[in-house]
Design a protein around this nucleic acid. Structure first.
Length: 374
DNA sequence: TAGACGTGGAA
DNA sequence: TTTCCAAGTCT
C-alpha cells in the first residue's frame, strides 16, 4: 500500500489543524453576499457561478441574479432565455442551462426543496462532487467534503502530496482526507475555511506562509518545497483558428444572427454568422460561400475590423466583414434571424460577439491611420 | 481519461 | 506577449 496520506494524519494533528484553521477563519473570512444566508438555493447558485470563476467576477452577477430570481421557484418558472440572459458574459453557459434544468427537477421531484442527501443531489444536472459537498456542508451542516482547487492546493502542501491533482484518483484521495479532517460541528465553516485559506494565504503564485495559521503543520513548508505543490500536468495552449464574422444588414438596418450548434463551443448561443477559414480564400469569399451554403444570398462588403478572442482551448483570430442581404426572397432557415437594435438588448450575447459587433468602432482604415500617425 | 467548455486578471 | 489560472462538470 505504501504511505497513504491517511497514515500521516493522527488525531492530534487533525485536531490542531481544525482548531487553528477555524480560529483563523473567524477572524479573516470575507463578507461575501452568499455568506449572509443559509438558503440552499442561494448557496447553490453561488457555487455554480464560482466554478472556474473568480469571486470578484461573480459578485455582481450573483447580486443581479438574486434580484431577478430571488427564490428557487422564481428561477424554475423563468424561461431558459431569461436565465441565459442573466448569465450573459459569465461564460461556461452550460452551467446556466444545467442549473435551470436542475432547479426545475427539484420542483418536479422534490417539492421545491433542495434535496439533502448526496445521491439525489449528485443526480442533478451540473452538480458534481464538489458542489454536492459545498451545498450539503454549508446549507445543511452535513459532514461532506467540498474539495475544489483551493482545497487541493492546501492539502497537497499540508501533506506534501505528490499526486497529480488533474487526476480523478488524486482528487478522490483528497476527498477522503478532507472528510477525515471535517469536525463534527461546523462542517460548512471548515470547508469554507479551507477554501478561504487557499484563496487568501495559500495562493497559487505567491503563498504567504509567514501569515499562515497552519505553517507549523505544513509538510511542504517544512521541506521548503511549497512552490512544488500542487503537482499538476501542464495544460495545452489554445489552438489558433481563423474565422470570419459577418455583420450583415437588411434594408431596415437589422443585423443577421445565427444560432450556434447545440453541442460545442458557445452551444445554442446566438451570434454573428461565423465561419472558419482555411487556405487563402478571402474573408469576403468565405463569408459569402458560408451563407450561400445555408441558402442565404449576401453581398459582402469591406472589412470592418479584427477581433481576437481566447477561449480555454481555442484562439479565434477573426475578421469582421460587412455585408447586406441580396435582393429577392428572404426567408431564413431555422436557427437564423434578423435582429433589430431593440431586440439586441434582450439577446444573450457572448463576449466574443460583443467584441465583433464593436469592431467597426475601429475600422481598418482608421487602424492604418493611427499606425501611420505613430 | 483527457479534452471540451468562457472570460478576465495577474504574473 | 504568453502562460496560468479561478469555489468544476460533462463526456
Amino acid at each position: 500500500m505504501g504511505t497513504s496520506v491517511d497514515e500521516q494524519l493522527d488525531s492530534g494533528q487533525a485536531m490542531s489543524i481544525r482548531t487553528k484553521l477555524l480560529s483563523w477563519y473567524e477572524k479573516n473570512k470575507r463578507d461575501l453576499p452568499w455568506r449572509r444566508e443559509r438558503d440552499p438555493y442561494k448557496i447553490w447558485v453561488s457555487e455554480v457561478m464560482l466554478q472556474q470563476t473568480r469571486v470578484d467576477t461573480v459578485i455582481p452577477y450573483y447580486e443581479r441574479f438574486m434580484r431577478r430570481f430571488p427564490t428557487l421557484e422564481d428561477l424554475a418558472s423563468a424561461s431558459e432565455e431569461e436565465v441565459i440572459k442573466a448569465w450573459e458574459g459569465l461564460g461556461y453557459y452550460s452551467r446556466a442551462r444545467n442549473l435551470h434544468a436542475a432547479v426545475r427537477e427539484v420542483v418536479a421531484s422534490y417539492g421545491g426543496k433542495v434535496p439533502d442527501d448526496r445521491e439525489a443531489m449528485r443526480r442533478l444536472k451540473g452538480v458534481g462532487s464538489y458542489t454536492v459537498g459545498a451545498i450539503l456542508s454549508i446549507a445543511y451542516n452535513q459532514r461532506v467534503p467540498a474539495v475544489d482547487g483551493n482545497v487541493m492546493r492546501v492539502l497537497s502542501r499540508l501533506f506534501a502530496i505528490e499526486g497529480d491533482i488533474t487526476r480523478t484518483a488524486t482528487r478522490r484521495r483528497m476527498e477522503a482526507l478532507a472528510a477525515e479532517l471535517i469536525p463534527e460541528d461546523r462542517p460548512g465553516d471548515f470547508n469554507q475555511a479551507m477554501m478561504e485559506l487557499g484563496a487568501l494565504i495559500c495562493s497559487s503564485s505567491s503563498p504567504e506562509c509567514a501569515r499562515c495559521p497552519l505553517h507549523r503543520e505544513c509538510r511542504a513548508y517544512e521541506q521548503g518545497r511549497v512552490k512544488d505543490f500542487p503537482v499538476k500536468r501542464k495544460g495545452k495552449a489554445p489552438v489558433p483558428v481563423s474565422v470570419v464574422f459577418g455583420r450583415i444588414v437588411d434594408e431596415e438596418g437589422r443585423i443577421l444572427f445565427e444560432q450556434r450548434p447545440k453541442k460545442g463551443l458557445l452551444a445554442g448561443m446566438w451570434g454573428l454568422p461565423t465561419a472558419e477559414r482555411e487556405g487563402d480564400e478571402s474573408p469576403q469569399a468565405r463569408l459569402e460561400r458560408y451563407c450561400a451554403e445555408k441558402g442565404i444570398a449576401i453581398e459582402p462588403g469591406p472589412v470592418l475590423g479584427r477581433v481576437e478572442h481566447v477561449f480555454s482551448h481555442r484562439r479565434w483570430q477573426g475578421v469582421v466583414v460587412s455585408g447586406r442581404a441580396s435582393a429577392g426572397p428572404r426567408s431564413l432557415p431555422e436557427g437564423w434571424r434578423w435582429v433589430s437594435e431593440a431586440e439586441l438588448n434582450s439577446l444573450a450575447l457572448p463576449k466574443v460577439y460583443e467584441k465583433a459587433l464593436s469592431a467597426d468602432q475601429y475600422p481598418v482604415q482608421l487602424e492604418l491611420a493611427l499606425k501611420i500617425e505613430n
